[in-house]
């Protein structure tokens, strides 16, 4: 009875895995494989490869990521607050405003510090 309810999910998972694996396997098995030197070498506009393709990211991406994580997750508090706004009286309302004020100060700080400039 209960297992039956999960049957669609199992089918979906099986189909998903199948769709992912079958083309890969098919390509691996069916496609002709005749490697030569030109094919093996990495292509860079007709030149020899200058450096590895695994160059590290620019540090600025990390900086933006750090700032994003912080503000993104702090706003998660807004959802339960908004849903239960009718039940939590004015104290609940104003404590969220206080919290947002603190966030605003953090935002002002990073703005003035120049963390939001790309250059």
């Amino acid at each position: 009875m209960l297992l039956k309810e999960y049957l669609p999910i199992v089918v979906f998972i099986a189909l998903g895995i199948g769709f992912g694996l079958v083309p890969l396997l098919a390509g691996f098995l069916i496609a002709p494989s005749r490697p030569n030197k030109a094919k093996e070498s990495p292509y860079e506009c007709g030149f020899e490869a200058i450096e590895t393709g695994r160059a590290p990211f620019d540090l600025r991406f990390y900086l933006v990521a750090i700032l994003f994580i912080l503000f993104d997750l702090e706003t998660a508090f807004l959802f339960p607050w908004a849903v239960s706004l009718r039940k939590i009286s004015s104290l609940g309302f104003f404590s969220m405003l206080f919290f947002l004020g603190l966030l605003l100060i953090g935002f002002l700080y990073e703005w003035c510090k120049g963390a939001l400039e790309w250059e």
Partner: peptide
């Protein structure tokens, strides 16, 4: 802490 953070800029 907030005052020092902002004035420290």
């Amino acid at each position: 802490a907030i005052i020092i953070l902002l004035t420290g800029l």
